[in-house]
């Protein structure tokens, strides 16, 4: 199996690791049985994601996709953040091995789960805005 240099770079120096104690939205996806859990913390001011941090239990790809996703959404308006796709995360990492694609799905879902938590906390139903945050096809097997 081959990881791109960008994956290894993110794995070696992951960005935005940690927690935000007063986060406005927190999302956790995956499960320990499958071997990947991602927890994403968002700080949101005036519709902008001003800070985000993550904690991940998982393989090299899981850590790299979490790190890349936080970089891609930090400083962005919610409207942009909610459009983050796993494909964009994969592209930003110069690709992932086929058996690791589900890690990128988890990264997208972790961001959406955190946004969903933000909306819920603010009394807004997230479903019409974010749609269904599905299970990772692999994890659901």
């Amino acid at each position: 199996m081959l990881y791109s240099e960008k994956v290894m770079e993110h794995f070696t120096n992951p960005r935005n690791v940690g927690e935000i104690p007063d986060a406005d939205g927190v999302g956790e996806v995956g499960n320990a049985k499958c071997g990947d859990i991602m927890k994403m913390y968002l700080k949101i001011d005036n519709g902008i994601v001003t800070d985000c941090k993550f904690k991940t239990f998982g393989c090299g790809a899981a850590i790299a996709t979490s790190s890349a996703a936080t970089e891609m959404i930090k400083g962005q308006p919610i409207e942009t953040v909610m459009k983050l796709t796993n494909k964009a995360v994969i592209d930003s990492l110069d690709g992932l091995p086929a058996q690791k694609l589900h890690c990128s799905v988890l990264a997208e879902q972790a961001v959406k789960a955190a946004l969903s938590d933000y909306y819920t906390k603010n009394g807004i139903d997230p479903a019409p805005i974010l749609g269904e945050i599905g299970e990772c096809a692999h994890c659901a097997q």
């Binding site: 070696t12 071997g35 998982g58 393989c59 090299g60």
Partner: peptide
């Protein structure tokens, strides 16, 4: 601790080992 990230970190320190984690098997 997930096995693959343990191995990758060990590799960064120059140590080659293996794991029975799912991630190493695909």
């Amino acid at each position: 601790v997930e096995g693959e990230s343990l191995l990758l970190n060990m590799d960064l320190k120059g140590i080659s080992a293996s794991s029975g984690s799912a991630c190493t098997s695909g």
